Amino acid sequence: MNVNAEELLSRIAAEDRQAFQQFYQLFAEKVFNTALSYTQNLQDAEEVTQDVFLSIHQAAANFKAKAAVNTWVYRITVNKSINFLKKKKRWALFHLNYTQKEQTDFEHPALILENKENAKLLFQFIASLANKQKTAFILSFVEDLPRQEVADIMGLSLKAVESLLQRAKKNLRAKLEKSYPNRRI
């Protein structure tokens, strides 16, 4: 079945539940995987995913097709993920029970089992990047989106995205070299 996402948004704006279910089925995996790349926690990614689809439901009538629906959904997901992490960090300052262990136990479902420890460390390093570098890196290398789509999602030029990716790779390389001084990276 060929589904037009813009048409679904129009139907969602008209309170069509079936259209919302179809839209959810179309984008849920992408939204969840992107949120998981940011939050590095299954429950947090589920919460962000719910928040994204609530926002989509509320904003469906305001979609103006200035960008592709896919780009719009990724943009909402990235913003919700970043805001969630900021809120969680602020909340953690008020609770002494918070431990960094919650962040370090991340295991992305797509990881190859034999490289679990290396991948866990890599995702920790990705999480430590500046937000724009992290977003460009996740969308480009984890979600495997074309660079131009990443630029559209981030509201930047293609050249700016390439620059962010270069800085992200440089920063990741430096962190990896520090962690593995005897390896060529």
Rank of each mutant, 00 (worst) to 15 (best):
A14W: 00
A14Q: 13
E15W: 09
F20K: 12
Q22K: 12
Y24F: 13
L26Q: 13
A28Y: 14
E29A: 15
E29L: 13
K30Q: 10
K30L: 04
V31F: 06
N33W: 01
T34R: 01
T34P: 06
L36G: 08
Y38K: 00
Y38S: 05
N41D: 15
N41V: 05
Q43R: 13
Q43K: 13
D44H: 10
D44V: 03
A45C: 00
A45F: 06
E46K: 05
E46T: 13
E47Y: 03
Q50W: 06
D51Y: 04
D51V: 08
V52R: 01
V52M: 09
F53M: 01
S55W: 07
I56E: 02
I56W: 01
Q58M: 10
A59R: 07
A60L: 02
A61N: 09
N62S: 10
K64G: 00
A65P: 04
A68F: 07
V69W: 04
V69L: 03
W72S: 01
W72Q: 03
W72K: 01
Y74D: 01
Y74C: 05
Y74S: 00
R75P: 08
R75C: 06
I76P: 05
K80M: 02
S81C: 04
S81P: 08
N83A: 13
N83R: 12
F84A: 07
F84W: 07
F84S: 04
F84L: 04
L85E: 06
K88L: 11
K88E: 11
R90H: 14
H95S: 11
Q100K: 11
T104P: 00
D105Y: 00
F106R: 04
P109M: 05
P109N: 13
A110Q: 14
A110S: 15
L111S: 15
I112Q: 14
I112E: 14
L113M: 08
E114L: 12
N115E: 15
N115L: 13
K116H: 08
K116T: 14
N118Y: 11
K120I: 10
K120A: 09
L122C: 03
F123V: 08
Q124I: 02
I126W: 01
A127E: 04
S128T: 13
L129H: 01
A130T: 10
K132T: 14
